[in-house]
Design a protein around this nucleic acid. Structure first.
Length: 610
RNA sequence: CGGGGUGUAGCGCAGUUUGGUAGCGCGUCUCGUUCGGGACGAGAAGGUCGUAGGUUCAAAUCCUAUCACCCCGACCA
C-alpha cells in the first residue's frame, strides 16, 4: 500500500481565522502552585487546560483544537488501516465486568456508581467487554470477519494519585480499537491486523511530529512479541526503556531480555569461599539498603532472595538476584511456568521463610518450592577481580545475616535443585539480546500507545464463538490497540518546549500562524493587512489566529511564544512601510525574524510548513 | 495505601508561633501618559480566611471534627 504524502497544509481544506479577543485563551504569568511538570505548567499557563477537580480538566479552545488535530490524524490512519469508527457507551453495567472478572483485575481503579434503581454501573476504563458484547450479538458467521472497530472517547480510571496534569488523569481521552479474527496467521488473521495497526501507529506519531520509540512490552497470552508500546522520547518520562544501539531492539525495562552474559570461568556455583561463614547480628535491617549501610558492604555483594507464591498459594518460587538488581516478576513467572505473586508474609513464615532474612538455603528441602537463581547471582568466583566472590545473604533468622556465603559449601542442598536463568530486570550496560558485544542503553519515555494481541481472552470469557468454514465453533480471536489522545498532547509539550513556552509541531498546533498586528484599530494599516493576509492564508489551508488585543507588543510576543504557534507574522509600521511583514518561526531564537513581502507570505508559510 | 504538606481575592503568596476591625504582587475596571519582548501614575472593584462545631469580651490565628487538594513512594491496559 503506498502511503500518500500527508502535508499538514492542504488547499482542499480552508483554514479557520479566529481573533484572540473573541475566543478564550486565558494566559497567566504564574502557573497554579501545584503544577510541577512542564506540560502541566505550560498547558495551564498558556490557557489550554484548567483543573476542575483531582485528575479532571477542562479542555479550553486551544487544547480542543490540538486534540482534534491529533484525532483527525488518528482517524485517517485508522480508516486506512481498515478500521471503522463507532461510539460505545461510557456507562457500563457491572454485569459485563462480572463475565470477564475484570472488576477484580481493575480493583479500585474502576470508577463505579449506583443508578437510581441501585444498579451497579461502571464508567468505562476501556471497552473490551462492551465491544465483545456488541459483536457477539451481531456477528454469527466467519464471513463477517475480520473487522476492526475503533472509537475516540472519554475514559475513566479512578487513579489513586492523579498527577502531572494531563499525563495521569482520572478522566482522559483515548482512542481504542478492537480487531476480530478467526485465525492468527494468514489472510485476515490477527497478525495482519496487528501489523497494520503497528504501521498505522508509526504513521500517526510520525505525522504528529513526535520523537518516539517503539518498544517490546509484556507479552500477551499468545506469546512472541505480541505487544508493543509507543513511547514519546523525553527525559521527564515515567517509564524506562532499554535500547540496543546496534540492532535497534528496544523494550520496556520490565520486559527487556538480557543478552548472553558469558559463563563464569569456574562454572555456576563453582569456586572456593572468600572466608569462614560468619553470622552477623543486624538489628532492624530487613532491607538490602539497611544491611549495606550497617555492614558497610556494597549491594552488589548481597544476595537478594525474594519469595513468590502461585495464585492459589500452593506452589512456591524462590528467586535469587544480586542485591543491586531487581527481580522481574514476569521472568519469574515464565521460568516457573505459572503465574506468581509476592508471597504473603504470614504464609511464608509458616512455610519457614524468615521474610527479610531469607537465604537461598531456605529453598532446599521444602516440598513444592522451586529455586531460581539469576546468572549474576549464581557465581562463587569473581572473574572480574580474579578472587573468590564475597557474598552476604540472610541467615534465615530474624535480624541476622551471613558473611562469606559460598554456594558450594553453604548451600550444598540448594544448588542441585536450583535453576540458573535470567530473572532480573535489565539495566543500562547489560549485554544486548540481539547484537553480540553491544550494551543496552537506558532512556526515559512517556507511553502514548499500546497494541496487544489479546487472543481469545475476552471471547472465551464472554462466550463469543462463531462457526468457521469447516463448521467448527471457534472462539473469536481479538486484538486491542490504544492511544492516549490527551496524554499525547501533554507528552508533546514535555518533549517540545523551552523557557518561553510550548513549541508545537506544525501538524498538531492549534493554529499554524499567529498574526500580531502592532495596532488594532480596525482602520489601521496593520489590521487591514492582518485581515487580507489571514484570508489568503486560510484559503491556502492555514489556521490563523489574529492577536487583536489592544496590548503592548511585549505582552503579545510573550503570549505568542507561550501558546506555541509555529509561525508568527508581526505587522508593524516599519515592515508595512516596505509592504512587508516580519516572519518568525517559534523554533527560532527571539528577535531573529526577517521581513517578507506581503505578496510572498503565503508561499513562505507553505515552505515553512513542509 | 504508607510518608510529607497546603487550603486566606481570578492567579501567586504573606499574616497563624505570641488571638485585637484582612494584607502584598500579578490580573481586572476607569482616567491620563506610553507603545517592538510581560510600561508608568492616579483611582476603583473584588475575600462568610475550605467547612462545621468549640474556647474567648474578641478567632485567619487556639482546640476538635470533617472535607478538598498537592508532592514523594507503592500501584498502574
Amino acid at each position: 500500500m503506498s502511503t500518500p504524502t500527508h502535508s499538514p497544509i492542504s488547499n482542499s481544506r480552508r483554514g479557520v481565522i479566529h481573533t484572540w479577543s473573541r475566543t478564550l485563551i486565558p494566559t497567566t504569568k504564574d502557573a497554579p502552585g501545584d503544577a510541577e511538570s512542564p506540560s502541566h505548567r505550560l498547558l495551564a499557563r498558556a490557557g489550554y487546560i484548567r483543573r476542575l477537580t483531582a485528575g479532571v480538566y477542562d479542555y479550553l479552545p486551544l487544547a480542543t483544537r490540538v486534540l482534534r488535530k491529533i484525532s483527525d490524524i488518528i482517524r485517517e490512519e485508522m480508516d486506512s488501516a481498515g478500521g471503522s469508527e463507532l461510539l460505545m457507551p461510557i456507562l457500563i453495567p457491572m454485569e459485563l465486568f462480572a463475565e470477564t472478572g475484570r472488576a477484580e483485575a481493575y480493583g479500585p481503579l474502576l470508577f463505579q456508581m449506583d443508578d437510581r434503581h441501585g444498579r451497579r454501573t461502571a464508567l468505562g476504563p476501556t471497552q473490551e467487554e462492551v465491544v465483545t458484547e456488541l459483536m457477539r450479538g451481531t456477528v454469527s458467521s466467519y464471513k463477517s470477519l475480520p473487522t476492526t472497530l475503533y472509537q475516540i472517547h472519554t475514559k475513566f480510571r479512578d487513579e489513586f494519585r492523579p498527577r502531572a496534569g494531563l499525563l495521569r488523569c482520572r478522566e482522559f481521552i483515548m482512542k481504542d480499537a478492537y480487531s476480530f479474527h478467526m485465525n492468527v496467521e494468514g489472510k485476515g488473521g490477527l497478525n495482519d491486523a496487528y501489523d497494520a495497526m503497528y504501521k498505522g501507529y508509526v504513521n500517526i506519531f510520525t505525522r504528529c511530529g513526535l520523537d518516539f520509540s517503539v518498544v517490546e512490552a509484556e507479552s500477551g497470552p499468545i506469546g512472541g512479541s505480541a505487544s508493543h508500546e509507543f513511547m514519546v522520547n523525553c527525559e521527564s518520562g515515567e517509564d524506562t526503556i532499554l535500547k540496543c544501539p546496534v540492532s535497534g531492539y528496544a523494550a520496556n525495562a520490565e520486559k527487556c531480555e538480557i543478552g548472553e552474559r558469558g559463563a563464569p570461568s569456574k562454572g555456576y556455583f563453582g569456586g572456593e569461599a572468600s572466608g569462614a561463614l560468619e553470622e552477623v547480628h543486624t538489628p532492624g535491617c530487613p532491607g538490602i539498603e539497611d544491611v549495606c549501610k550497617f555492614m558497610k558492604v556494597k549491594a552488589s555483594n548481597m544476595l537478594k532472595t525474594v519469595v513468590f507464591q502461585s495464585e492459589d498459594g500452593a506452589s512456591w518460587v524462590v528467586a535469587v538476584v544480586r542485591g543491586d538488581h531487581d527481580v522481574n516478576e514476569g521472568k519469574v513467572r515464565d521460568a516457573a511456568g505459572f503465574k506468581v505473586k509476592l508471597a504473603d508474609a504470614a504464609q511464608a513464615r509458616a512455610k519457614g521463610f524468615e521474610i527479610g532474612f531469607v537465604s537461598p538455603r531456605a529453598a532446599a528441602g521444602k516440598a513444592g518450592v522451586r529455586l531460581l537463581v539469576d546468572k549474576d547471582a549464581a557465581v562463587s568466583f569473581d572473574d572480574a577481580k580474579g578472587k573468590p566472590m564475597f557474598w552476604v545473604t540472610g541467615a534465615d533468622k530474624k535480624d541476622h545475616h551471613l558473611k562469606h556465603f559460598n554456594w558450594g559449601r553453604d548451600a550444598a542442598e540448594a544448588v542441585p535443585v536450583a535453576t540458573v536463568t535470567d530473572v532480573r530486570n535489565a539495566m543500562a550496560g547489560d549485554p544486548s539480546p540481539r547484537a553480540k558485544g553491544a550494551a543496552l542503553v537506558a532512556q526515559r519515555g512517556i507511553e502514548v500507545g499500546h497494541i496487544f494481541k489479546l487472543g481469545t481472552k475476552y471471547s472465551d470469557a464472554m462466550g463469543f464463538a462463531i462457526m468457521d468454514e469447516t463448521q467448527q465453533r471457534k472462539s473469536v480471536i481479538m486484538g486491542c490497540y490504544g492511544i492516549g489522545v490527551s496524554r499525547t498532547m501533554a507528552a508533546c509539550v514535555e518533549m517540545s518546549h523551552d523557557d518561553d513556552g510550548i513549541r508545537w509541531p506544525l501538524p498538531i498546533a492549534p493554529y499554524h500562524v499567529i498574526i500580531t498586528p502592532m495596532k488594532v484599530e480596525p482602520e489601521s494599516r496593520a489590521m487591514q493587512a492582518a485581515c487580507e493576509l489571514s484570508g489568503a492564508l486560510a484559503a491556502a489551508g492555514f489556521d490563523v489566529l489574529i492577536d487583536d488585543r489592544d496590548e503592548r507588543p511585549g505582552v503579545k510576543f510573550k503570549d505568542a511564544d507561550l501558546i506555541g504557534i509555529p509561525i508568527r507574522l508581526t505587522l508593524g509600521d516599519k515592515s508595512l512601510a516596505e509592504d512587508s511583514v516580519e516572519f518568525k518561526l517559534r523554533s527560532a531564537p527571539a528577535g531573529t525574524g526577517g521581513f517578507v513581502k506581503i505578496a510572498e507570505v503565503v508561499r513562505k508559510c507553505l515552505e515553512a510548513a513542509r
